[in-house]
């Protein structure tokens, strides 16, 4: 049985369209739509068929952005390791902080260029950068959930962090203060990063679209 008028979630279709290369946009989305209408929707019903479709779109999303997520996650982990164990609050550290910030800004632009070049759309660059940043934000949550307490045990011997703890007007223990500090950094840093990623990803996307080589021939003879 075929449910020809049935449609997968519109937002999922839109995201898929933004992730695909121009040459694949029509054919790949058509393949998924055909499978959805011809098989999944009649067999599974709407909720599960929609879930199937969304799962496949997420698969395309992850295949498109995983190298960018790894890049951003590595940068975040490197910064956190440095900040936790090597930070002494000196001028050199202030310079290194600027380097880390500059590297993050550059990475967002580069991801945008990659996305714009790959999809031929500015919005493709925006989506990939925002998606990569959102995934890296998730990594940030997991990373801090597992490292805050054990890191706190070691950071208590670092004079810089002892001074920072005493500087703040709090009666909380060092561990509790650090957990609250990390939660604040997660909420503020992650959301600010997402906004920056949207802006810089769009700029990168525009550059990537401009740098895109001529589209390969859509139709080729056997």
């Amino acid at each position: 049985m075929m449910v020809q008028e049935a449609n997968p979630p519109r937002w999922a279709e839109s995201i898929l369209g933004l992730l695909l290369k121009p040459a694949d946009r029509e054919t790949v989305s058509g393949d998924l739509l055909e499978e959805y209408r011809d098989t999944k929707r009649p067999e599974l019903g709407r909720p599960r068929a929609d879930a199937w479709y969304i799962r496949h779109v997420l698969g395309y999303f992850w295949r498109s952005v995983w190298p960018c997520v790894v890049l951003l996650a590595l940068m975040f982990a490197t910064h956190d390791l440095y900040n936790s164990f090597l930070n002494t609050g000196s001028a050199t550290n202030a310079l290194l902080e600027r380097v880390f910030t500059g590297a993050a800004l550059t990475a967002w632009v580069l991801v945008g260029i990659y996305g714009g070049r790959r999809t031929g759309r500015v919005s493709g660059g925006t989506l990939m950068t925002a998606g990569a940043q959102a995934s890296a934000w998730l990594f940030m949550a997991v990373w801090w959930a597992f490292t805050t307490y054990p890191f706190a045990q070691l950071m208590q011997t670092n004079p810089y962090w002892i001074a920072a703890w005493h500087y703040r007007p709090t009666d909380a223990s060092f561990e509790r203060w650090l957990i609250e500090d990390n939660i604040g950094a997660f909420l503020f840093g992650g959301s600010a990063g997402l906004v920056a990623a949207l802006v810089l990803g769009s700029i990168g996307g525009a550059a990537g679209r401009f740098l895109r080589p001529p589209t390969r021939g859509a139709a080729r003879a056997f």
Binding site: M2, D24, E26, T27, S29, G30, D31, L33, E34, D38
Partner: peptide, 8 residues
């Protein structure tokens, strides 16, 4: 069923 989208 594909809304007229081409097959490759």
């Amino acid at each position: 069923v594909r809304d007229g989208r081409a097959r490759r």
